[in-house]
Design a protein around this nucleic acid. Structure first.
Lengths: 221, 221
DNA sequence: CAATCTGTTGGTCGCATGACCAAGGCAGCA
DNA sequence: TGCTGCCTTGGTCATGCGACCAACAGATTG
């Protein structure tokens, strides 16, 4: 322990505690006093660092998204194969989400609690993460690994949905590890569910079913 | 206007309003007074019907899940082909979720706000819905349409995740209708993303058992 | 008409909340 | 040793909450 460690307020511990409570009860239903008590500090001490409850949430989410980007980046960088990079990234994302890091969960499910500027800030961070994923998918597609016509943005959106939802039903005592879950999802998504003798007539060959890529005048989101 | 219409309290309208607000701001952050004002009734009138705020949420969710089951059932029953039933059911689920029926959204994302008995009740209802889906998937698998070894429960979980997550990013002005989104997801999931010349060596043939292939020497964290 | 039943009205109540702050202590530096 | 600035302490404050209810209105029924 350095001298600094003695002087330094356990900010990480506070955020961890807050994340845990926010996850359990939701942001609005969690009181500052609860957080303070659980973290072993006084409410005033929290106020000293975070002028408002919302600031705590933002700090929490900020940290979580940095962690997520770093984890996925590191995992993906272990290979140069574009398809493998996606699979490893997926694994890392799920591992982090299920590792007990409540911050990521809160980031995913509690952003509705934010409004105004704080919301925009988080959305901006989230967009960065999404753009990062889009990049990986784009490279996999560019390497000719994916069917032509696949809408990468939709793939990312579907993938995020399926994977993020896991946090909703996963239990550590279950019969599958996070890594296994990630790999199973990856294999289903990559190969499809239909058996080989069914696949030719089950769906249109062109997977980009609706004509999408024309930028519409009506902007989305 | 029948006599009954005059006498009958607009319970549906109340629940709709409550659902809209819960979706926008979350359950805990929405006050009874807000709901009352938005619905054009007095707070006391709500209390007359629902002894506690939580009861409102439960009633809302109850109604939503009944709607969902009915919608999916109806859609699926339009064909007897097991695979088609799944596709049509998926469509119906997404249509309902994106139709502006905030109740379904609230059901999916706000169940954390419930505790104790109320929570159990909703979980029980949800389980019924899930069992219903499992039945459809089981029949599709039984008809030999799916690859052997596919874990149906995981398929359902992944599918729910991807589809439910759509509510998070969908905007009515976008360039895809709910039906198109459902169909695209279905085609990706059914056929897979990999191009035909890649699929043989990209993943294990047996989709059921993950067992980390350990291509990565460094196991991340 | 009288009795009843359904639903509304306009409050009140106690309480927990988020925000805030003056005063004090204590480590590190001069 | 005395000073300085960071951080904590133990509160206060106004606000708005969910829950609750006695009284009442109007339609329905006998």
């Amino acid at each position: 322990m350095t001298k600094a460690a003695l002087r330094t307020f356990d900010e990480a511990g506070l955020l961890d505690t807050a994340a845990r409570l926010f996850r359990q009860k939701g942001f609005a239903a969690t009181t500052l006093r609860e957080i303070a008590q659980a973290a072993g500090v006084l409410p005033g001490s929290i106020h000293y660092r975070y002028p408002a409850k919302e600031a705590l949430l933002v700090a929490l989410m900020d940290r979580a998204i940095e962690r997520a980007i770093a984890a996925v980046q590191t995992a993906a960088d272990q290979t140069s194969d574009p398809t493998e990079r996606v699979r490893l990234g997926l694994r890392a994302h799920l591992q982090l989400l299920l590792s007990g890091d409540d911050g990521v969960y809160v980031l995913l499910y509690d952003w509705r609690s934010l409004a105004g500027r704080a919301r925009e800030e988080i959305v901006r961070l989230r967009d960065r993460y999404e753009a990062f994923w889009d990049g990986m998918l784009y490279e996999a597609a560019g390497a000719g690994r994916l069917r032509p016509g696949v809408d990468l943005k939709l793939v990312r959106l579907f993938g995020f949905g399926a994977v993020n939802w896991v946090a909703t039903w996963y239990s550590p005592g279950g019969d599958r590890t996070p890594e296994q879950i990630a790999d199973v999802f990856w294999s289903y998504m990559a190969l499809g569910l239909l058996s080989d003798d069914q696949r030719h007539d089950a769906a249109p060959t062109n997977l980009s079913v609706p004509e999408p890529p024309s930028p519409s005048p009506k902007e989305g989101r």
